[in-house]
Write a protein that binds this DNA or RNA. Structure first.
Length: 240
DNA sequence: CGCATTTGACCCGCGC
DNA sequence: GCGCGGGTCAAATGCG
């Protein structure tokens, strides 16, 4: 069982992307047991989007569930793993550094934020090997890879897959090195929606679930969440 | 029977 | 160039 706050949060992404997405689309409803948001203003930072603190303004609103910490991040996997494996007991702003190994991810976010020039190359890049459908999204002129912006957060939950209002289909599972818990890979079941998410448990504290979203939904949650998403809330209008 | 999950194989990038 | 590790595919399997 996960924690039980009924608060439904929508996060919107405003960055231009290669995908033509209606402005009202692309929201990230966060799991119902997620009780905090990153501090306002985080969307202004292009190099750092990791938060582990409950904003003071929201902390008092947080239900007294066993929620303990939420981390938002657009950090690429390796960095995120470094963070989590380095110990998450603190509630401090997490420092993320670019690394050459992860330029693709940062590059994507940065470019999409600053100017965008991704679309053309991307759509016309051809591919003929196995594993194409998603691989095609990753290469630009053989060097730069393209990834959707990522957001990860950490939640204390007994269930791996947090209910965020979207339907997900599992497409892979992988044992991560130095971890006894496998990482699961999910894809949004909606047609033409390439949003993926990755779920894993923290090695140090298996009670903590790390969920990483990648991409933007090109549709609404279209489920029983719709009602809640329309509930007026100062949280619903938060944007990265 | 249709859809979701499982799981081994494969691909790719990166570091050495 | 090779090995490793992460990410994805897709056939097999499970399940309602």
């Amino acid at each position: 069982m996960s924690t039980t706050s009924q608060t439904m949060l929508n996060h919107g992404l405003l960055e231009d992307q290669d995908d033509p997405v209606p402005s009202h689309m692309g929201f990230f409803p966060f799991p119902s047991n997620l009780t905090s948001l990153p501090p306002l203003g985080c969307h202004q930072s292009r190099s750092l989007k990791a938060f582990s603190t409950i904003p003071p303004s929201l902390a008092s609103d947080a239900p007294s569930s066993n929620f303990s910490e939420t981390l938002f991040s657009s950090a690429p996997t390796k960095q995120r793993e470094d963070i989590t494996s380095a110990g998450c007991r603190g509630s401090q702003l997490l420092s993320l550094n670019r690394s050459s190994a992860n330029l693709w991810a940062w590059g994507d976010v940065g470019e999409s934020l600053t100017g965008k020039r991704v679309g053309g190359d991307l759509d016309h890049h051809h591919h003929h090997h196995l594993g194409v459908s998603s691989m095609k999204m990753k290469k630009i002129k053989g060097r730069r890879k393209v990834r959707e912006p990522r957001f990860c957060f950490k939640t204390m939950s007994d269930v791996d897959v947090l209910d965020d209002g979207y339907k997900w289909r599992k497409y892979g599972q992988k044992v991560v090195k130095n971890t006894q818990h496998p990482r699961s890979y999910y894809r949004c079941t909606q047609d033409n929606c390439r949003v993926k998410k990755r779920v894993e448990r923290l090695a140090e504290d298996p009670r903590m679930v790390i969920t990483t979203y990648e991409g933007r939904h090109a549709h609404s949650p279209s489920q029983d969440m719709e009602d809640q998403s329309q509930t007026p809330s100062h949280l619903n209008n938060f944007f990265w």
